[in-house]
Amino acid sequence: MADVPDNAPEHCPGTTSEQAGKSSSCEGCPNQKVCASGATKAPDPAIAEIGAKLSTVKHKILVLSGKGGVGKSTFSAHLAHALASDSTKEVALLDVDICGPSIPRIMGLEGEQVHQSGSGWSPVYVDDNLAVMSIGFLLSSPDDAVIWRGPKKNGMIKQFLRDVDWGDLDYLIVDTPPGTSDEHLSIVQYLSATHVDGAVIITTPQEVSLQDVRKEIRFCQKVKLPIIGVVENMSGFVCPSCKNTSQIFPPTTGGAERMCADLNLPLLGKVPLDPRIARSCDEGKSFLNEVPDSPSAEVYQNIVQSIKDYCSNRVTEEQSTT
């Protein structure tokens, strides 16, 4: 871990942080002088290495939400499945949720392990054209907990980007944990020498969720990450028995629709609550294959199409400006 030397105290802020050499935990650390001099704050050489490594990845999409449990991982997984259903496209899904990795289960890869190859770690393949990487593949048992502070998580994310043998890709999808913290800062920072297409923001309809999601949008604006659009998930439930709709998570402040209008962002679609989505995730199957003709699958397909269009438009825009 380049950020935290082995001989550093437990609360080391990381050699590249602004607090390096200055925080109270730095007192007595053998590296304090070097850190305080600012020498360690030079840009991490890994950023350039990652830039070179990912230059063969055409599109990079981050999936974000300030709120927990709104369906980021479910969406990331299904976006990956849908993009990979075109067998001419190479797709990869990277899970940077270090403390709560869900992707292995949702992709049906529980218990899989990564392999070390000559050119780095090789990801786990769901299909020939769909690769997955998650810290879950590095854990030896379902009871293992990853009790890591920020700097260590950052080191892992760096390794995922720099040391995984991704190969040539059309799409790299990145699933993130909730919030705006180390993982988010790191992924944006480590990808700063590459071109990121943008972020898809996931929310549920109620204000308890939107109030956190607005903060995430501010975060994107701060770090100049374009927003592809917003997905409202768990939007209403149609009773299978009487067909009436219940707003289980009520849009008391107008839901994602109102937020998108206020902030001038595209609303990509509203995915209803559907027990078959949760079940497919538990079973590690693609809901889009399991129940292709359901209303939720249809909404999903439309959203995926908008994202594809967004990505290809960005390519044309760039070509026309150069």
Partner: peptide, 13 residues
């Protein structure tokens, strides 16, 4: 309403 974009050590402190 502002996002709290802090890394771990700052949060811990």
């Amino acid at each position: 309403d502002e996002a709290v974009v802090w890394r771990g050590p700052k949060k811990s402190a």
